[in-house]
Each structure stands twice: as structure tokens, then as C-alpha cells.
């Protein structure tokens, strides 16, 4: 049942992604409304799918890549929907929904079979560490989308080509302020994710920090976001430079998340642990 719901969710996400892109091209209000409904329904089926999988497995489904990708997509859509309650950032859907759909697609091509939890991972810290880290990633994904939008809009205004996408994107300040808020929420979560991870590592392997590649890259990512936050708060960095930095930091984050799992071997590599 949870697999079926998972597939349904993927399809719904894909449809709403296309819808959001159509919306940004045609600026039709009704399309936007329909997409929001679709995405909300998708989020609901996704939530149920994750819940059912949790029951079936007997532990939070945050263990392998299939599950973490799925959770990431869920968190991204969740954060987006939450955001829509407070700030209506038009056209964000056209960037975020496809990204969430991609995460969902990545999840769907991973082996999805249920797995018994290895003893090393049996701990309360597993769901805490994984969910906090993934939530941080979802928020940074949002910041990444906002940065892309910022750069697009910034180019339009700078180059004085004010047709097409210019009318569809929100104002520079709005994008920048939202970006900063994402950073201010995402950064503490990332920090918390690393701390809880370290505590869990101590419990499981007897050492808080063992410099495995994922840990090292997490630290690098953390430093990048820390630098960005620092520059924003002290010097007043903003706009284009901050947006580029956000994109670079997110790329590092994605590498930490994926590269460390696939390319580099270590305690975190989902790939080797559960084969």
C-alpha cells in the first residue's frame, strides 16, 4: 500500500511541477490554484505513505537512500506549503516543485525494499539526526531556488530586459529577505544535525568525530553556510553575492549528501551499508 501511495505521490508531484511551469509561462491564476491543490493532495498521500512504511518497517523510514530522498522531497513540499500560508511568493513553485519531484524520482529508482535495522543504527538518535539534517537540507534547497530566482531577476533588471520572466518573478528584496530567513532557520538546524549526529556516533561507534568523508564534507558545508551567515549579519552582504554563495553552499551540501555516499566510502555511505 505504501508503495502504491508513493507512486501516486510521485505522479502528483510531477503533474503539479508541470502545472507550475505552465503557470509561470501563462500567468494564469486558476492554474496556480489547481497546482497548489495538487501539491497539497500529493503532500497528504506522501505523508500517509511514509507513515505506512514506518509501521511496516517498525522504525522511522530514514535509513537508506530511497527513504531519505523521499523524506527530503516530503520536507521540501512541506516547507513550501507552510511558506504559502504566510508569504505568497508567486512562481516559487515552478522552481521548488520540480526539485522536489527530482528528489522523489531519485528515491523511486533506489531499491525500495524494506530492511531490518542494523544494530549500529538502532537508536533514538537515528530519526532525530536524520530528520533534522534532512529538514535543514530541504530549507537550503528552498534557499537555493530563491537564489536562482534572484539571479534570474537580477540579470533581467541589470541588463534592462524587462519582458518575459521579469514580470513573473517577485522583487529582489523579497527574494533576498526570504533567502536570509531560510539561512537563519536552516543553519541552526544544520548545526543541530551535526551535533546530534556526533552524539549518535559516540553512542554507536564510540567516537564523536572520526573524520570520515561525510563528516568532513558536512563540516565544510557548515563552514560555508557559517561564513555566509556571518557576512550577511556583519557586513550586510546581500543580493547577488549572497545568492551565488547560497548556490555554491548548496552544491557542496548536495555533494556531501550524495557524493559522500556514492563516491567516497565511510560509515555514512548508505550504498555499502545496506547492500
Amino acid at each position: 500500500m505504501h508503495r502504491f501511495l508513493f507512486q501516486i505521490t510521485l505522479i502528483i508531484y510531477a503533474i503539479s511541477s508541470i502545472g507550475f511551469i505552465v503557470q509561470i509561462l501563462t500567468l494564469r491564476k486558476d492554474v496556480e490554484r489547481v497546482c497548489m491543490w495538487f501539491l497539497t493532495i500529493g503532500f497528504a498521500t506522501h505523508t500517509v505513505a511514509i507513515g505506512l512504511r514506518w509501521i511496516a518497517e517498525g522504525h522511522p523510514p530514514l535509513v537508506n537512500l530511497h527513504e531519505s530522498f523521499s523524506f527530503l522531497a516530503w520536507a521540501m513540499v512541506g516547507v513550501f506549503l507552510l511558506l504559502q500560508l504566510g508569504y505568497k511568493i508567486k512562481s516559487l513553485g515552478a522552481f521548488l516543485a520540480p526539485l522536489a519531484t527530482m528528489a522523489m524520482g531519485a528515491s523511486s529508482i533506489q531499491p525500495a525494499r524494506l530492511i531490518p535495522l542494523p544494530p549500529a543504527l538502532k537508536s533514538l538518535w537515528l530519526p532525530v539526526h536524520a530528520s533534522i539534517s534532512l529538514l535543514a537540507e530541504a530549507i537550503f534547497a528552498l534557499a537555493f531556488c530563491l537564489s536562482i530566482m534572484y539571479l534570474l531577476q537580477e540579470r533581467q533588471i541589470k541588463k534592462k530586459r524587462l519582458r518575459g520572466i521579469f514580470k513573473r518573478l517577485p522583487s529582489l528584496d523579497t527574494l533576498d529577505i526570504m533567502n536570509e530567513r531560510c539561512l537563519k532557520i536552516g543553519f541552526p538546524l544544520l548545526t543541530l544535525g551535526i551535533i546530534t549526529g556526533s552524539i549518535w556516533a559516540e553512542e554507536a561507534w564510540g567516537s564523536y568525530w572520526s573524520w570520515d568523508p561525510k563528516e568532513t564534507w558536512s563540516l565544510i558545508t557548515w563552514f560555508l553556510y557559517a561564513a555566509l551567515l556571518h557576512q550577511r549579519l556583519t557586513v550586510g552582504w546581500r543580493g547577488r553575492r549572497a545568492a551565488i554563495m547560497t548556490i555554491v553552499a548548496f552544491a557542496t551540501l548536495v555533494f556531501t549528501y550524495l557524493g559522500a555516499s556514492f563516491l567516497l566510502s565511510g560509515a555514512h555511505s548508505y550504498a555499502t551499508w545496506f547492500e
Binding site: 531577476q153 524587462l162 521579469f166 517577485p170 522583487s171 529582489l172 528584496d173
Partner: peptide, 9 residues
Amino acid sequence: ELAKKIFGD
């Protein structure tokens, strides 16, 4: 219009 696209509010 441009000011609004830059500053929003």
C-alpha cells in the same frame, strides 16, 4: 514599477 520589482514594498 521598477522600484517595486527591486524593493517589493
